[in-house]
Design a binder for these strands. Structure first.
Lengths: 206, 206
DNA sequence: GCACTTCTGGATCGATCGGTCCGCAATTGG
DNA sequence: CCAATTGCGGACCGATCGATCCAGAAGTGC
């Protein structure tokens, strides 16, 4: 069902599917899921309705693929962060990555996941679930990494890893919102520096 | 054009306009502007299409009034914060207010402004502008208040008030996003406590 | 050149969107 | 009791949504 490179018989498609997906990702990033209409997407992708359905399935499938591309590209800083050697560096790479990703020149500002998730028709439920899952995944990665840091003595024993992960996510989300609102990268950079200056925060459950 | 109580001739309306607006506010809060369809709103408000248009004008006007009610009610913590005597207390009241407002029992989680703004086709531009203005207003209030604190020696002279305001807004926004994602109030409370523990953050422009 | 496969643009579908219109019900002042 | 005024429910409007269908163009293998 995926890419068959065995017997390319018939007329070859007249566009680059990867390139089209990139354009679609940007439109979703800019307008969210429901805010991105088919005509919007098709114009940006430079292809026709039929070609889109034949290549990507439908709008929801197109979004899934665009999200995968996003998670693997501009939003890959989560996975990159957790391999850092210390918890402080994990937080640093994560937050700096969030700032960079949310203010990439030539891309929409903010975070695709947030822009697309805070919506709410009934058909948006699937999408919301999809994005909630993705964010949970990131949150879990951070929590496990901080748990390890506690075990290794890199973080105070009383630190709650889940709470610390939520703390980092909270700041990251705030950055994304600010960036979407037009905050300049330098400002956000200074803010993350200030946050990281008081690392680790005292986060233990009572 | 407002409430005329002089000559109530004709059939009186069979519903409480204030109560209906409250219900509409909750629907917008839950689903955003475009995510809240007329049928959704009307069902929640318990009135007919005609009554809504006669009483509130149209969907956009209804949203404006719902937003005003929101800013004056559940989201009034911004105005309440800036009258506190010290910058630290301003930040404390603001962030605790953000947590409380975003996790009010019986209300949708998160922030109406964020849910409604981060979406949008072309018709959502007016709404986005409306909400951006409101957030700018809050930001400006905080900035001026922090400027005063710097002038009074309540904050270090090198502190940049605009940057500090953005810092507080960033955390507040992050809290709203987390709450919308289902984060428990207690967790968010602990996170704000940790943030406030390192007050004031070192925020000066280089 | 022919048979076959695949891609593509345009017309079209039913559903839903926000908004309007009309006829009737209900209430008040005389 | 009657005339005037206003509220209300339901039918209806054009526009737009995502999705489908079809005829024809553009390729490939024999």
């Amino acid at each position: 069902m995926a890419t068959q490179k065995s017997a390319p018989v018939g007329r070859p498609r007249g566009f680059d599917a990867d390139e089209a997906l990139e354009k679609a990702m940007r439109v979703f990033w800019q307008n969210g899921y429901e805010g991105a209409s088919l005509p919007d997407l098709l114009t940006a992708m430079g292809i026709s309705r039929t070609s889109m359905y034949a290549t990507f399935g439908n709008k929801e499938e197109l979004f899934r693929k665009a999200l995968a591309r996003y998670a693997d590209g501009p939003a890959s800083y989560g996975a990159e962060a957790v391999v850092e050697p210390t918890a402080r560096e994990v937080a640093t790479v994560f937050l700096h990555g969030a700032v960079r990703s949310a203010t990439l020149p030539g891309y929409p500002t903010g975070c695709l996941s947030l822009r697309a998730s805070l919506i709410g028709g009934e058909d948006g439920q699937i999408i919301r679930g999809l994005l909630a899952d993705w964010r949970d995944e990131t949150s879990t990665m951070l929590r496990k990494r901080f748990q390890r840091a506690v075990d290794e003595g890199d973080l105070p024993a009383e630190t709650d890893p889940a709470l610390l992960a939520r703390y980092v996510m909270t700041v990251g989300n705030g950055i994304a919102v600010q960036a979407a609102g037009g905050a300049p990268r330098d400002d956000l950079q200074l803010i993350t520096d200030a946050v990281l200056q008081s690392w680790p925060p005292a986060l233990a459950r009572p």
